[in-house]
Design a protein around this nucleic acid. Sequence first.
DNA 1: CGTGTGCATGTCGAATCCGACATACTGGAC
DNA 2: GTCCAGTATGTCGGATTCGACATGCACACG
Lengths: 107, 107
Amino acid sequence: MDPNKQARLDAAGWKVGDAADFLSLSPAEAELVEIRHRLAQAVRTVRAEHHVSQAQLARILGSSQSRVAKIEAGDRSVSLDLMVRALLGLGLGHQELAGWLGAKSAA
Amino acid sequence: MDPNKQARLDAAGWKVGDAADFLSLSPAEAELVEIRHRLAQAVRTVRAEHHVSQAQLARILGSSQSRVAKIEAGDRSVSLDLMVRALLGLGLGHQELAGWLGAKSAA
DNA sequence: CGTGTGCATGTCGAATCCGACATACTGGAC
DNA sequence: GTCCAGTATGTCGGATTCGACATGCACACG
């Protein structure tokens, strides 16, 4: 979070934590959320780099545009399986996948 | 594959390919198989290192021993989600997960 | 020998996730 | 302004995956 914003919120009497604090997630649950978010970002980024529309990716996956939109939105109805299949469909291998999982966040 | 073994099979008139050749999988399908195999291995290895039984891990996950066995066997009825949740339940974070995904295989 | 612990496999009803479709919102071209 | 491609959101019936349980096998200990 932007330190300036945090300072302002502090001054206003707000407690500042992350989503895990707020929802009281276990460490494992928080990690799963992080992973889902990273993969969702990866799909959106890689797809854009390849100049592929959601509809086109959907065809590659044998799915529909709406589901691709949900993948990138991190919708609750989307499993890790589908996210990973989307990335593989975009041509990534397991090594590159590991890169998206493990790389430091752009913050 | 062990080069010696391949040489022996060659001598016997066998064509030697990998599972993807045999089943004519697309690259993406082959990658998914690879990923599932790596995660299954990771669960078995990390669990053993922590001296945790399948039944104990099952309790951590809120699941049953039989499902943990299927996870480690790479059973078709097990999703990537469940495999990842198992690893997170064993205390791994997304970085370590990426390590298991991306590390070079022991061959 | 019997007993206990750990792991594997098959099957079930219930829960989740899927593709598909309808629909709505956006931003750029004309 | 009207279009249109791209994206987002909600819902549905059917497919997949879930936890649970039963059961079998192997191995160690007594």
